[in-house]
Amino acid sequence: MNVNVEEKLFQNRYKVDHGRPHISIINPAVCSAECKTQQCTQVCPANCYKAEGNGSVSLITDGCLECGTCRIICDDFRNVDWDYPRGGYGILFKFG
């Protein structure tokens, strides 16, 4: 089964803080060279992390649901710098 999570995220309301992502990968070389499993690319519920063809991991936080999964499952390398967006920015749940 194929699921397009972008279609789901399209239903959500966001106020994106352009140019100020609230999450970043601390050292991209760790993802490509040391992390064999790259679980963030599978488990992030908004599919913000993508496994690129060259073995690296890219991150775009625009669709982030601010759950915290990526930070906690990166417990082998602690390679995710995770903060909340600035006040008022990020996901704005309509129903919660």
Partner: peptide, 26 residues
Amino acid sequence: SLTIGVGCMLSDFKEARIPPYLMLEM
């Protein structure tokens, strides 16, 4: 409206590497 959801331990998600939205869709 209906609310439908599914939740599992993060350690299990980490190991199985199943996208949660795929689990929900199934």
